[in-house]
């Protein structure tokens, strides 16, 4: 069989007879504009055609919204991941270079929590753990328990009359030496900014979250619930693994001081 015959046979398979087409086309072409829409061959054209204009506008609007969302989302993500502008990176490096020296608590021994200080003149909490310039509440408010461990909101009050610049928080369980980790709390001003290299991830509130070995307090951005005139409060999402005992030691490094806080 010649190529011509093959091609004809192949195309004839998909070319069914259309005896009425000539008349339909004449009627279609000679119809008025309004009738012509009705006379189109396939019903799908009747309704899709009337929607083409509006749907094009809708599609264009959706595209604009999508692009805008991507731009805003990208900015938001960048802002969330960028280090706080109020933190001097050189100062932070200097604080990070300080070694962590926390005491060890023998298994079964009592947790040597930091002494309580009366701060009723500087904030809503009457007594907080520590001797300053950074004070902590007890870990009373359990935020979430995950497969990895237990998460709390660490609430620190800072005497800003004596402390300035960034403050670095690092910690561990004093009996097991399991590292305390910090997670970002998105869109929450006043929360400690997680720093250092990502150690692992955990699922917090249904969201896979990166965990860091450090938190940095940006003293220029206190917790939004801080009342005017009070010493500013800074919060951090802090967790420790299941194997830990909950006797947590925190080393707080700031300009001109290193403080150890023990909380449980």
């Amino acid at each position: 069989m010649s190529l011509r015959a093959e091609i004809r046979a192949a195309i004839d398979d998909v070319t069914p007879p259309a005896p009425a087409l000539q008349q339909k086309v004449v009627a279609y072409v000679m119809a008025g504009e309004r009738d012509r829409v009705v006379r189109l061959h396939r019903p799908r054209n009747r309704w899709t055609r009337s929607f083409r204009g509006p749907m094009t506008l809708v599609a264009a609007a959706l595209l604009v919204v999508l692009i805008g969302g991507l731009v805003l989302g990208g900015r938001l993500l960048r802002d969330m991941n960028a280090p706080p502008q109020g933190i001097n990176q050189a100062q932070l490096k200097s604080l990070e270079s300080r070694p962590v020296h926390l005491p060890t608590v023998q298994p079964g021994a009592e947790c040597p929590t930091s002494p309580l200080t009366d701060l009723s003149a500087h904030g809503p909490q009457a007594f907080l753990l520590g001797e300053g310039p950074v004070y902590s509440t007890r870990l009373a408010y359990r935020n979430e328990t995950t497969n990895w461990g237990t998460w709390y909101v660490l609430s620190l009050t800072v005497d800003t009359t004596t402390a300035s610049g960034p403050i670095l928080i690092r910690g561990e369980d004093l009996q097991t030496h399991a590292q305390v980790l910090f997670a970002r709390a998105p869109l929450s001003p006043g929360y400690g900014f997680p720093a250092g290299t990502v150690v692992r991830t955990d699922v917090l509130g249904g969201v896979t979250t990166q965990l860091y070995p450090e938190a940095v307090l940006d003293l220029t951005r206190p917790y939004e619930g801080t009342k005017k005139g009070d010493w500013p409060v800074y919060k951090s999402t802090m967790g420790y693994p299941k194997a830990a005992t909950g006797c947590i030691g925190l080393q707080v490094d700031g300009a001109g001081f290193t403080e150890h806080l023990v909380i449980n």
């Binding site: 998909v14 069914p16 339909k24 086309v25 189109l40 061959h41």
Partner: peptide
């Protein structure tokens, strides 16, 4: 595609 072909012929004729 025969139905599509008919549509094309109609539009082209117009």
């Amino acid at each position: 595609d025969a139905p599509a072909a008919e549509d094309v012929v109609q539009e082209a004729s117009l």
